[in-house]
Design a protein around this nucleic acid. Structure first.
Lengths: 353, 353
DNA sequence: CTGAAAGCGCTAACAA
DNA sequence: TTGTTAGCGCTTTCAG
């Protein structure tokens, strides 16, 4: 890197200043004062069209970019926010973060990405760093919507949005998918297609999402006038293997076998499909299957392609961005808000495509 | 939000200043000058232990955090870098970014995450924003390592690292997985296990990775003294469906059928496994199968669990962080650097586990 | 050992 | 309409 070339004004403009141009450079070259240059660049005070044009032209030629750091120092707004994530795989976080980042970028604010892989000490250091950087807001994301501790009180006064994450503090704003509604969507669809014996194979019960999806499952059965016989709801792991196991078990006595399966995620559904296939049952002929997550790699690889509930993670991300912007503008938002899921129909549920 | 409470020094310390404390607050309460407080906080000049302790105590009590914006303005280093990504799904990007972020955070620098989903105009705006924020460096990531345009010359002088992305500019530093070596690893392993007729089912030829993996495939066959009969390498799509199709085709004439498959990614391998199963061939008994990517959801769902080549994306991310830090410290790095893959052995290749 | 003051790049209030 | 100036919060000489 060049040493500072000092203040020799005779130097070729292109050659000097390896770093960025300042407003002084612009002002000097345009032959106006710094204040005037500032007004021209910010389209602020009254200014003759001629001066403004001249300043803008010089700025353009110099490829001048205002130093946001200096601007922020003055305005006491950094135009940045931090995203704190705990999902070290990123399957759920990534779509949310992508949508969020897009929404915020469109409002001129930039996003610090922080992965605090479930290490509380690391998370604290991240928060500390973000506070030093004077972020205007904070987004907190977790994996799989399990409950977590609220952010350090150090962040008091700073807008915080929890998305795909849940805290108990009633003053906090939490944005989550409507798991119960999503489940209802799936089961209502199956019922509408004439399925009568619908079973539910799902993940570990300690997930709130599992309990809510089961609730939706039962609610939809009830309102369709269908029974939920004991054993119609099996909870296990989030894996294909569990889907296969559960199917072998559920279909052990053919007489009592279901004619439809609503699965807690797409991996379980995928395993279920494979197991049904092995047993010799056809999908959707004998058994209809619906999954949850609408994870493309699972739904499209499955045979037949899998109908699944989509949590609309991008909408969730956008909503989180909107909420944070509102809070940054002064609104006090709080409470738990659940955003609707939607059902993406493919061949596995036997609908007319 | 409170109005400024003005400069009434009688106010209760806790009540005033809803925002962050400044070094003035610390200095005033410690009864020293600002300069002294700064020295104490930065462990800088010579200072009596007593004063230093007093200042630190006050800072602690006030929960003082230096304003990085102001620091950066002075030091002309923002301690931030930008990550520009084009992978809108995140499967490859996420592990890289996570490792990168971790590496950089450990060096005290924060990361702006920018998703420019293949929209050049958007990407330009992102770069512009990052330059205004005076980032100290830039990381560029793409999906699937396809070649891309170098970053605008506007970034001249700014350290840039391309990771999982490839540009032609010889002055640029590109970090990539060693696709060829990874393929060789897989095929050598199969050969060592005694397989003689190894076929390769892979993705679209316009991917450089596909060409490199095929090269590795052929090289390994040659050095194992095995032939690659015509038709032993099939390129198609990156999908399970293609894996099934290719298997049906390859095994149409049982006499000429392969005894091992090296697949270009795990989805293809997964499809291949399913198709082999349907044909009635056992894995790994009749046919051994190896995939590429080591994507957990694919490898562990497969039956039997899938042996696969791991691109070590986290190592790639860490290396990118290291490289960027070096460049930020003044080193000039350039060229294409390929990092080793590794083989993760599971049951599908017939190894002793 | 400590205090005062200049300045990083920019904005906004006030003068001219 | 334009120029001057006082900060934003911090660091760093240079005096005391």
């Amino acid at each position: 890197m060049n040493d500072r070339l000092g203040d020799d004004p005779e130097l070729d403009e292109e050659a000097r200043a390896p770093g960025a141009r300042t407003i002084r450079d612009v002002a000097r070259l345009a032959g106006v004062s710094i204040g005037t240059a500032s007004k021209a660049l910010n389209a602020n005070g009254r200014l003759s069209a001629k001066t403004r044009a001249k300043v803008l032209k010089v700025a353009e030629e110099l490829d001048y970019r205002p130093n946001n750091l200096a601007q922020s120092l003055h305005r006491a707004r950094s135009m940045t926010v931090g995203i704190l994530s705990n999902d070290n795989y990123g399957r759920f976080t990534f779509p949310i973060v992508a949508a969020l980042e897009r929404r915020l970028f469109d409002s001129g604010i930039a996003v610090f990405m922080c992965n605090a892989t479930d290490d509380p000490a690391r998370e604290r250091r991240h928060i500390d760093q973000l506070l030093r950087k004077r972020v205007d807001g904070l987004i907190v994301t977790a994996r799989r919507a399990d409950r977590r501790e609220p952010i350090e009180p150090a962040a008091r006064g700073l807008p915080v949005v929890y998305v795909f994450a849940r805290v108990d503090n009633p003053d906090a704003l939490c944005l989550l998918p409507d798991d119960e509604g999503g489940a209802r969507l799936a089961v209502e669809h199956l019922a509408r297609l004439g399925r009568k014996r619908i079973a539910h194979i799902t993940g570990p019960e300690h997930f709130e999402a599992v309990r809510l999806r089961e609730k939706g499952f039962r609610a939809a059965l009830a309102s369709a006038g269908l029974a939920a016989p004991p054993g119609a709801c099996r909870s296990g792991r989030w894996s294909e293997e569990w889907g296969r196991e559960a199917v072998r078990d559920l279909f052990a006595r053919p007489a009592a076998a279901p004619d439809a399966l609503f699965c807690g995620n797409d991996q379980i559904a995928r395993g279920a499909l494979d197991a049904l296939n092995e047993i010799g049952l056809s999908v959707p002929g004998d058994v209809a299957v619906v999954g949850f997550d609408n994870w493309e790699v699972m739904t499209s690889g499955a045979r037949p392609p899998l109908t699944s509930v989509d949590m609309n993670l991008d909408a969730l991300g956008t909503a989180a961005g909107d909420a944070l912007l509102q809070m940054m503008a002064g609104s006090k938002l709080c409470g738990v808000s659940r955003l609707p899921c939607s059902l993406v129909v493919r061949a596995s549920c036997g609908a007319i495509l």
